[in-house]
């Protein structure tokens, strides 16, 4: 079984590498959206610092949604998903590995860009560390919960906008806690409580989401 899971992981990494130009697009979108804000609201460093955490998080949510469909779409269209579902490996585990591979290949690059963006929006150093820790804890949550909706919309031809409609309301608490943590950091206040809440949400979704995703994929086969 572990051999099967390792094979899934390696295959998805190899595929991501082959399709790396496709992976670049959400990253470019991320940078672009964030550069729009100083242009839209003026370059005043204090204003930028105030809206910065919210802007980065909103942009991160939007750009993670862009790449989300990749998670299962190809496998669904070419029948690989069918074959995976017909193997003896438990589907929730396979799905978890796929989400992990997806997170590593599509989201981690966004995290690597975050210092640059913090610079753009004039975040202070403590704010940046808070931002990075919320992103580290929060983005896996985005991938896990997002994968449920991706599974549900697989059978539809035009799932893209619907995916956003389904997911954005669900991500609101994450947005609130994450930006609150960064704001607390900007005031030199402790923010471990916010991180703990995000961590708790991550653990809950880690326990439940794989089953929901597996179920959603089975529904997509009807």
């Amino acid at each position: 079984m572990s051999m099967a899971l390792k094979a899934v992981f390696e295959r998805d990494l190899a595929l991501a590498y082959r399709q790396r130009s496709e992976l670049m697009q959400p990253m470019m979108f991320f940078i672009l959206v964030i550069s729009l804000f100083p242009l839209g609201i003026g370059p005043n460093p204090e204003t930028l610092q105030k809206v910065g955490p919210g802007v980065i998080w909103v942009a991160a949510i939007l750009s993670s949604l862009l790449g989300m469909e990749r998670l299962f779409k190809d496998d669904y269209n070419d029948g690989s998903l069918e074959q995976i579902m017909l193997s003896a490996t438990p589907l929730p585990l396979v799905v978890l590995v796929k989400v992990l591979a997806h997170w590593l290949t599509s989201i981690v690059p966004l995290l690597l860009l975050s210092p640059l963006l913090a610079l753009f929006l004039n975040l202070t150093e403590p704010m940046y560390w808070a931002l990075l820790s919320t992103l580290l804890l929060g983005t896996p949550l985005l991938s896990l919960v997002g994968a449920i909706a991706v599974g549900l919309t697989l059978g539809l031809n035009r799932g893209g906008v619907l995916l956003a409609l389904l997911l954005l309301p669900v991500f609101i608490p994450l947005l609130i806690f994450a930006t609150a943590a960064v704001e607390a950091a900007s005031l030199q206040l402790p923010y471990s409580a916010q991180l703990a809440i995000i961590g708790a949400m991550l653990l809950i979704s880690l326990a439940l989401a794989p089953f929901a995703i597996a179920y959603a994929l089975r529904v997509s086969q009807n």
Partner: peptide
């Protein structure tokens, strides 16, 4: 069969996946 992989990779993956 994944179109971005070659025949060998596809079959290796399939075999590993199906034990």
């Amino acid at each position: 069969v994944n179109r971005s992989l070659n025949a060998l990779e596809n079959l290796r993956f399939w075999c590993a996946q199906h034990g």
